[in-house]
């Protein structure tokens, strides 16, 4: 008996490592080595190709503070974060709540239809939006003829910013609605029955039963949406190139331009690290606030 357990233990060891080996190799080559390399690179002045690189210590990081592009990326990530987080959250919640009112048969298919924008490549939607907003497009001709409005959508920083924000919210709301919907459907019959007996209906039911019961899903959605706001790339790359005057630029865009079109790869690495620190701090704060709320209201 004892002998058998030893061999099975050995077998488990071998199997475990065997099954995990693809991941371990992958994470060594495409995660750990690049990660160390990134930190080393951030202390270098190097143009990605030439054999000469020079060690500059913390200079790259010092340079970040005076860089208008870095400042724009930093500020814009908050400008994107707040509306995207709130609107995705609201959009997801509203869609989910409306869908729960539907007859059982229609729920599934409706939720899936709202989910379609999420599946679309940002490239395809950018093509549509860019053409739809060109000077002679049906939309702009209509606005000029009927409202005497002449909007240059991508020349005005504020408008361009909101076009991109709305595009991201449009894309993600249906996806987040699925999470919330799945949580609402998961509320147990006992809870619903108890609420019914207590005479809780309508808005009272929504505020005191549904929302507290789906709080974990809502928290997940908020965290996912905030993470999303830091990863915007495709839409500004294709629609505005970050402009006008850096009004729509993002970290991803600036890091890409710095590393691969201006060939300042060391400086690009330093930017990426600064970005990571910002994401980390923001997510920590968000988690802390959500925890605090959850406890305070007993959710």
């Amino acid at each position: 008996m004892k002998k058998r357990s030893i061999t099975s233990e050995k077998r488990d060891n071998i199997l475990g490592w065997l099954f995990c080996s693809p991941y371990l190799i992958f994470s060594l080559v495409f995660f750990l080595i690049p990660l160390c390399w990134a930190f080393w690179l951030s202390a270098m002045d190097w143009n990605l190709m030439s054999p000469d690189k020079s060690f500059v210590g913390f200079n790259n990081f010092r340079q970040l503070f005076g860089d208008a592009k870095v400042k724009a990326a930093f500020v814009n990530s908050f400008r994107y974060l707040v509306p995207i987080m709130l609107l995705c959250f609201l959009g997801g919640l509203v869609i989910a709540l409306l869908v729960t009112q539907l007859p059982e048969k229609l729920k599934g298919i409706t939720a899936v239809l709202f989910f379609i924008p999420y599946l679309t490549s940002g490239v395809a939607t950018s093509v549509v939006v860019k053409y739809l907003f060109t000077y002679n497009s049906v939309l702009n001709v209509f606005l000029r003829d009927h409202f005497d409005l002449n909007i240059s959508w991508f020349k005005n920083g504020k408008i361009a910013f909101w076009v991109i924000t709305v595009l991201v919210v449009w894309k993600m709301s249906g996806y987040y609605a699925l999470f919330i919907l799945s949580a609402i459907e998961g509320v147990s019959e006992d809870v619903k029955e108890a609420a019914r007996l207590d005479g809780s209906v309508g808005l009272h039911y929504l505020w005191h039963v549904t929302i507290p019961m789906i709080m974990p899903a809502l928290t997940t959605v908020l965290v996912l949406a905030s993470g999303l706001a830091f990863g915007i790339y495709t839409e500004p790359y294709l629609l505005t190139g970050g402009g006008p005057q850096l009004a729509t630029t993002t970290w991803q865009l600036e890091i890409y331009y710095t590393s691969f079109t201006r060939f300042q790869s060391g400086y690009g690495a330093a930017m990426a690290i600064a970005n990571a620190v910002q994401i980390f701090v923001v997510l920590r704060i968000l988690n802390f606030v959500m925890d605090h709320f959850n406890r305070k209201f007993g959710w």
């Binding site: 080595i33 990134a38 990571a276």
Partner: peptide, 12 residues
């Protein structure tokens, strides 16, 4: 976040 790894991953 994956963006940190962009340049070194490209080099590899």
């Amino acid at each position: 976040p994956g963006i940190i790894l962009l340049v070194p991953k490209f080099m590899i």
